[in-house]
Write a protein that binds this DNA or RNA. Structure first.
Lengths: 338, 338
DNA sequence: CTGAAAGCGCTAACAC
DNA sequence: GTGTTAGCGCTTTCAG
């Protein structure tokens, strides 16, 4: 049905194709009466501009690109859906481009994506938000881009972030309030600088309560369930054992709970466990996991909106965009006993 | 610097642009020597055809569409990655289009997608694979499409499926072999006809062992964790209680385990639990879940390959594509005790 | 085997 | 305010 071209519309409305173009693109300098006529013809013919012709003639493709490394399916889906919500609302499509941030050909891949000139702008998620090689390439290309949760060089592009550090502070505070003094921490993947703030929040809360951060209670993890298991095995073998463990993400927290179960420890009576992200697994494991909920979808949507604003040459909001995470208290944390 | 156009290449190679086009598109009727020259020029200029110009002039967009309803993030990501693997390999991009299969505007949405003519073909996942309104619209549009795991009208399009029924049979058999006689079953969402085969497999296995399917041991679920909890509460309140529960997906199995824990039942000693899908949660819960692994990514990749074959006007393989699922035995199932 | 010409449907300059 | 004229970069006729 969408055989209708701009010519058909022009003919039917009794105007030139340029006028139709103006109306379709919401350009000024069209009399209300003419605009009306054109819109009527558009409606009647169910006219839809041909995207290929549009991007060939103009400079825009009406497509946004989403570049991500695949940390977790839930995360990616949330980001996609957020970005899609904003894109669709403005008639843009979304091209997804999963990649491997450690791949030696990553830059080349990005370059190809740019050279194909299929997208008007790019959204980056962690850890790509912090890869200077990628950032440099993007800046050189002059393609607008927006970063989600960048940890470094925030001035390099517009970005959207959450108060990770503060949320981690609050969670640690919560554990301290429950009476815990020996609180273990499982760090996130070192490539994900975004999660480094979580460690800082943990340290700050302990510090503010006059508790020294002990090295042995801080273990490196790699964001995966398995790395959480390994880290938990180390922590739970310590003497004295920590009475609470705060993992920098839910998967590692779930790994921690698995190990605790295997060791015959009761959660939360013997050991409290807290995570970060509020992935579905958080309320599907037993006992349900205390964690931090991040507004991932909203972040992605905001990021896409920022990108579109930038693409359209409008002025960006001057304030940095920081969204709030919130504590979700469930059954895996409890007061320190004994 | 993909400023290079087909004209630059033609000039540099000393041929006409048509010849360049022929080489780039792997068309016949080019002498090896000429082809060589052109390829050299392409290389030197790092020429990349402009997709917009290509699709405007030709009829192809070099983009595949993926239409899905969002059952589970893991499922969607697997499908996306499989489809992307096949698409990229042939120079195609992938446009994702999540939607709601119950939306009253779904058909309209699909129609718009088609009218925009941005895609050369479409991949459908369950439950969209079985929505006749969508199928009719697609067939009318003549756009090639492929379905993943359709349950009905398999002749309507090429498709990729798994042996769901057989896998469910095997799982039930496994439980029977462990000595279980009262095996509860939690059905999948009725809109997902694809999972109906799982119920059939369950019934067939019981029948083959001379055990009658008792209505009270079969409960309707809706694929969600919460619906699994509800169904499990019903099943575990029965007298005599089932000694094993087979849920048509992992989320519902996880819900079942949650309820069992809450009732103080030991898994697998008091109650065996089995799921279907092998989502990440299956090995992250405690005890780890016995389940069925489906080759989702491979299915999607195969589907995309079928679609590309079709788009390129080649002959499709005559045999239906059916991939094999496999049993994953973990800790949530054990021999019937007492 | 190769090339010249004619668009694909739209936007960007300029006229009017 | 509105229309005219060129292209965007490529594929498709159809000649040679």
């Amino acid at each position: 049905m969408s055989k209708a071209t701009i010519n058909h519309v022009a003919q039917r409305a009794g105007v030139s194709i340029k006028t139709v173009s103006r109306v379709v693109n919401n350009e000024p300098n069209v009399s209300p009466a003419t605009r009306e006529k054109v819109l009527k013809a558009v409606e009647e013919l169910a006219y839809q501009p041909n995207p290929s012709a549009r991007s060939l003639a103009g400079k825009r493709t009406f497509v946004l690109g989403l570049l991500y490394d695949n940390p977790s399916a839930n995360y990616v889906i949330d980001v996609q859906n957020g970005a899609l919500a904003a894109s669709r609302a403005q008639g843009y499509d979304l091209l997804i481009h999963p990649c491997d941030h450690r791949s030696p050909t990553l830059i080349q891949e990005v370059a190809e994506l740019l050279d194909q000139s299929r997208v008007d702008g790019l959204i980056l998620t962690p850890p790509l938000s912090d890869l200077s090689a990628v950032l440099e390439r993007l800046i050189a290309s002059k393609l607008p881009f927006v970063r989600i949760a960048p940890a470094v060089d925030k001035h390099l592009s517009p970005y959207v972030a959450t108060n990770d550090r503060d949320a981690a502070y609050q969670m640690t505070l919560q554990l301290l309030t429950l009476g815990h003094k020996r609180i273990g921490f499982i760090c996130g993947h070192p490539d994900h600088q975004a999660v480094a703030g979580r460690y800082q929040g943990y340290c700050a809360a302990l510090g503010d309560h006059g508790i020294e951060v002990q090295e042995k209670y801080v273990v490196q993890g790699y964001n995966s369930f398995e790395s959480g298991e390994q880290a938990a095995r180390k922590l739970l073998a310590l003497t004295p054992r920590p009475t609470a463990i705060f993992a920098a993400n839910d998967d590692m927290a779930a790994g921690t709970m698995m190990v605790a179960h295997q060791l015959g420890l009761n959660i939360p009576n013997d050991i409290s466990v807290a995570g970060f992200d509020d992935t579905p697994v958080a309320h599907q494991i037993w006992p349900s996991l205390t964690t931090v909920r991040q507004p991932i979808q909203t972040m992605a949507q905001t990021a896409a909106e920022l990108l579109l604003t930038q693409i359209q040459g409008k002025k960006l909001p001057s304030a940095d965009t920081e969204l709030e995470s919130s504590l979700i208290l469930r059954d895996s944390t409890g007061p320190m006993l004994g």
